[in-house]
């Protein structure tokens, strides 16, 4: 003892520094050892009691699968809206007094506008033919004395967003040659509205179910700390730090989040696989093809990551508060 003190007096600065490094080294080694031990032990725990934890991570999985499904639905609707928007067009019904040549010329002029991708002229006869072919009304139309349909210019805008189409439509509708104007964007509007509703719902549902995950984990951790109350007291008595006591519960939270996230991805993929057949048939009946988009790998990883972060955070908050309140009182 005396010798140590002497040495300390002789080289105080050096010794202090050395002790500092040693302590950090010791600390990181201790830390690593404990993590290695806990990794082994927590996996062992799950293998020994597979059903005890299964219920918790199934609840988490369902809570996460719901917003994931909503997200995928919204993604597919957006894709659908995109497909429809390709066909968004503005129809300009021309004044009857306008000649066919003037109409064609106007169409050519319009094509040159930067905001117009394409435009073509339909004479009154063309319009009649197209209409009767489309409606399968051949004989009825033939019985009409004169053609009630106006000559039309169909304009395909470059920009497919609703506001841009509307601006272009208003602009072209005010041309002196144009008697009336119609924008075929109702469906686009509806789809966009539905998509927007789903978007909001996604936020709300994600929030609520995210909270559910936090509460489920919190409650599970509360019960886990209660079940291990004696153990927490004993390890605190033999000198365990707060983080040492907390660590096994964080591992528990990690596994809950990981399994919950993985199962949530499985549920989402499974549901979409179930839907893809009927959706194909439905799309075929409308004469289009729609490939259902599922969760991509990065999205799945994001979901799992979010689950892990949520449950570790929840575990941290709950357990920190709990173990601070469990003070050793064995005497």
């Amino acid at each position: 003892m005396a010798e140590t003190q002497n040495q300390a007096r002789r080289r105080p600065a050096n010794r202090m520094k050395k002790r500092g490094t040693r302590r950090t080294e010791l600390h990181s080694r201790t830390w690593l050892l404990h993590h290695r031990h806990l990794l082994r032990e927590s996996v062992g725990d799950i293998i020994r009691h597979p059903f005890a934890s299964a219920l918790t991570w199934l609840v988490i999985a369902v809570a996460l699968a719901l917003p994931a499904l909503l997200y995928v639905t919204q993604k597919n609707l957006e894709q659908l809206a995109g497909q429809w928007q390709e066909g968004a067009q503005v129809s300009l019904y021309l004044e009857d007094r306008l000649s066919a040549e003037a109409g064609s010329r106007l169409a050519e002029d319009l094509v040159r506008r930067p905001e117009v991708r394409d435009a073509w002229y339909l004479s009154r006869d063309d319009a009649m033919q197209e209409f009767s072919a489309w409606m399968d009304l051949g004989p009825v139309m033939e019985s009409l004395d004169n053609n009630p349909l106006p000559a039309t210019i169909v304009v395909i805008p470059v920009s497919q967003t609703r506001t841009d189409i509307e601006i272009l439509g208003e602009l072209l509708g005010n041309l002196p040659e144009v008697a009336d104007m119609q924008m075929d964007i109702e469906w686009v509007q509806r789809l966009e509205s539905i998509s927007e509703v789903l978007n909001r719902a996604l936020f709300a549902v994600s929030g609520v179910l995210g909270l559910t995950v936090v509460l489920v984990i919190g409650n599970t951790m509360r019960m886990a700390t209660e079940a291990r109350r004696d153990e927490i007291m004993v390890v605190k008595l033999v000198g365990a730090t707060q983080s040492f006591v907390r660590r096994p519960f964080l591992y528990m939270g990690f596994w809950y989040g990981l399994f919950g996230g993985v199962v949530a991805c499985g549920l989402t993929w499974g549901s979409l696989a179930l839907l893809s057949g009927p959706v194909d048939t439905l799309a075929a009946s409308y004469g289009t093809t729609l490939r259902l988009r599922s969760l991509t790998a990065p999205e799945a990883l994001g979901l799992i990551g979010a689950a892990v972060v949520l449950s570790i955070t929840s575990a941290w908050l709950t357990v920190s508060r709990r173990i601070a309140s469990i003070e050793p009182n064995p005497i």
């Binding site: 600390h27 050892l33 390890v235």
Partner: peptide, 11 residues
């Protein structure tokens, strides 16, 4: 082993 584990002893 508990007190040793808490203190981070080598296996």
């Amino acid at each position: 082993a508990l007190p040793l584990r808490v203190a981070g002893a080598q296996p």
